[in-house]
Design a protein around this nucleic acid. Structure first.
Lengths: 331, 331
DNA sequence: CTCCATAGGTTTACCGGTAACGTGGGTATC
DNA sequence: GATACCCACGTTACCGGTAAACCTATGGAG
């Protein structure tokens, strides 16, 4: 039932090697042989064995691994989609994992992945355990780090600066006349990139002479609830805030919901800003002030950089994919 | 640099086979041998080669494939998360793909997957091409079909009935006194499961003597915009509707936004119902009437059923994971 | 004292491809 | 006419594990 190259070879009256060449679309055989082999392969229902192929000739692997922080993140869903579409088109298979914002979980996943001898790896973020970096360097695997720009990537990087995103929003709030801005974050200590946005935000505000009034960084997942309760906590401490910058759009919408529940007018009484871009954010009664992140484009660029490297093409070490601040109507 | 079993064997003064047994935690060696082998493996930085292992002994594969309709779907992100957590815990690796609601794309993906000789496959939905079914049957691979309950699954199924979801919501609207209900769908012709919900909805309304007033099934992706414009279209045709059931919560929220923009009061002037569950839906000024789907639980159950089958345990052909209608405040 | 079970190994034979190299015959070139 | 060269293949030697069969002391039972 399970035919292999040998079976086809016997039935077609050629050698195993010729069958291999024909099926991989190589050269070194006549048209006659080609059609004969193809027909026999079809008739026997041959299913290629990539395991054997990748094992016998390691450079032939078409397996790519990708690790995201959380599979439930809407933004990373789009990144995954971009990666998947590009890889599928190029004939690669995608193995995924989640690191839950923990470098040791990432390392465990990378170890598993490497044991499959993949063609390359896509990681999210700039923070990795020494073991991960060491392993990837030793195996000399092509690596693309996405999402945040690493000053010195392990191999290649595709993304943007979270620090700059925060700074840009800080400046925007100042320009809109806000003077007492706060911040609501999530995943305290776990999410380095949210922290980078806060850093940039804080720096921009300080430089403008109106330093960050207060910040509440929760330990929870960055969802609507966290935004709602983060807003509540922040306002209970500082009732005089005139703007709040959130970890992401989900949380900002949660914050908006809280304002609505308390009868606070947005943007008159208080300004609300999110980050990341989310379809819902643009259809709210007032369009959310936020920063759009080209998620799918990042995924696509990462996959293409990886494959380009595999084909020996020159690939830039760092690819910057610009984000865009959308003023909206909530600040 | 790349050590293999042979290298470890030589350095530890034992045979390759003993090293293999030690590393896999088997038996048939002394404690002394064990520690010696482990130390040498550690020192040489041995990286197991799962490719070789799976190739040499096919039943040893720890690779599981999963195909979802779209990687950008919030609901399936949670399903993937459930699958991933369960598989990681059990020592399996996850290969993913998207079928974009097209059976031929699914078949192409399955063919690629099968060539990696995986331990099992998780598919979404009940609709597959004959080629897919044929291939899976021939390879006798463990298969779990999730999301919708197939009357006769290829192998195993985990999910619920979309038809029943629709019928339950139809009945709920009737009970709330709605008499002229409409439906707004998406992914016309592509999404069989949304169509099943519409069927159930229509049947329940008809049986109650207040048949479906109108339906608008768009071709677009089921997002906020589609909900907004679908609502607009539906109301322009039938201004007298007193309830609208949407393909999912995103679209329902889009519909709510349209009502708000037009000054329609919800639920007084018109009722709005969604499907699927979405964190945002429960934090709106009025909680959305919807059906909660236990996404993560489905993923977990699917992964566990697959692994149970692999270990030879008896697994029920069909696992029903109940959904729950949440009345909310929009109907 | 023999027999036998058992612990603790070793040996052998694959799994199904692919790279590298070999080969025979025909054809173009000098 | 000899040489070179190419085409269309065939041969051989792996890749790194694992299953299964096979050894060989050692200790205890009968």
């Amino acid at each position: 039932m399970k035919a292999n190259l040998e079976d086809i070879a016997r039935a077609a009256g050629v050698s195993k090697m010729t069958v291999s060449r024909v099926l991989r679309g190589g050269s070194g055989f006549s048209d006659d042989t080609r059609t004969r082999v193809m027909q026999v392969a079809e008739r026997l229902g041959y299913i290629p064995n990539r395991l054997a192929a990748a094992f016998g000739a390691e450079q032939a692997s078409t397996l790519v691994g990708m690790c995201v922080p959380r599979l439930t993140s809407g933004l990373f869903g789009h990144v995954l989609d971009g990666v998947d579409r590009a890889l599928t088109r190029l004939g690669f298979q995608l193995m995924i994992g989640a690191n839950n914002h923990a470098t040791d979980e990432e390392e465990a996943w990378v170890r598993q992945l490497v044991s499959w001898r993949p063609a390359g790896v896509i990681l999210s973020g700039r923070t990795h355990s020494p073991g991960t970096v060491d392993l990837l360097r030793k195996t000399a695997l092509p690596v693309v780090e996405i999402w945040d720009l690493t000053t010195s990537p392990i191999d290649m990087a595709v993304g943007f600066s979270h620090h700059d995103c925060g700074a840009e929003m800080g400046l925007h709030l100042i320009r809109r006349g806000r003077r007492r801005a706060g911040f609501v974050g999530a995943l305290a200590r776990a999410d380095v990139m949210g922290a980078a946005r806060l850093d940039g935000f804080r720096a921009a505000l300080a430089q403008a002479g109106h330093p960050l009034a207060d910040a509440e960084v929760l330990n929870d997942a960055p969802g609507f609830y966290a935004g709602y309760y983060g807003m509540e906590t922040l306002l209970s401490r500082r009732g005089d805030l005139d703007a709040v910058y959130f970890h992401n759009d989900e949380m900002a919408i949660g914050g908006l919901a809280f304002c609505q529940a308390r009868g606070l007018r947005v943007p008159e009484d208080i300004g609300i800003a999110g980050w990341g871009g989310m379809e819902a954010a643009s259809i709210l009664p007032r369009r959310l002030t936020t920063t759009l992140v080209p998620t799918t484009a990042i995924g696509k660029a990462a996959a293409e950089a990886l494959v380009a490297r595999l084909t020996g093409a020159a690939v830039p070490e760092v690819t910057v994919v610009p984000t865009r601040l959308v003023p909206g109507e909530t600040v």
